[in-house]
């Protein structure tokens, strides 16, 4: 049983993709995206997207890392096995800063990468855009707008006409097996 999952439309260059995205945004679509081989400056505004919240998540990760790092050292030396080495006090907080910092960076970096993947719902190897073989161009030199059929304003014929009126080249309905 085949089903229409959405539509993709190709645009010639970053500029025309940006202008088309502004029109799609103004037409009130919500479940859509623009695809390009590299991030395009100004596309977030053109698509009417809010700021990414990833920074806050990374901040929390980094704070946890620092706390774990400092706590681990203080606990090991001051509580678990107090022992004076090289005349340093058991709670030598100055000496703990280096590893605290390293743990902050480590957790922050892990938070950035895995947070980014989580926000992007990756890894996800199946996506309606992959039903189109032509879409492979997007990681080379293709610039696409893709609209999901789940979007309340989506209508196969009308949406196709709209995208073509914005000057799209190759326009293709994404047909694939029903899930």
């Amino acid at each position: 049983m085949s089903k229409i999952h959405g539509i993709i439309a190709e645009f010639g260059n970053p500029g025309s993709l940006l202008r088309a995205a502004e029109k799609v945004r103004d037409s009130g679509f919500t479940r859509w995206d623009t695809y390009s081989p590299f991030p395009i400056h100004g596309m977030d505004q053109a698509m009417g997207m809010k700021r990414s919240k990833l920074g806050f998540v990374i901040g929390i990760f980094a704070f946890i890392g620092a706390a774990v790092g400092f706590g681990m050292q203080s606990w090991a030396h001051a509580i678990a096995y107090p022992q004076i080495i090289a005349g340093k006090p058991v709670f030598a907080w100055q000496a703990y800063i280096v590893i605290t910092f390293a743990m902050l960076v480590l957790f922050g970096a892990i938070g950035s990468v895995f947070g980014m993947l989580a926000f992007n719902r990756l890894p996800r190897l199946n996506h309606p855009v992959f039903f189109s073989d032509y879409f492979e161009k997007t990681t080379d030199d293709g610039f696409f707008i893709g609209i999901d059929s789940q979007d309340p304003k989506f209508d196969p014929e009308k949406t196709k006409t709209l995208l073509e009126s914005l000057g799209s080249g190759h326009t293709e309905l994404l047909e694939g097996p029903d899930e």
């Binding site: 081989p37 970096a109 996506h127």
Partner: peptide, 28 residues
């Protein structure tokens, strides 16, 4: 490639992650 599609909604988070990684790596 983890299913990377090059969508702008992905690039947005990607660029933040890259920027923060650069910011963390600089003092590191």
């Amino acid at each position: 490639a983890l299913g990377w599609r090059g969508g702008n909604r992905q690039w947005q988070h990607y660029e933040i992650a890259y920027l923060v990684l650069a910011g963390l790596s600089t003092p590191l």
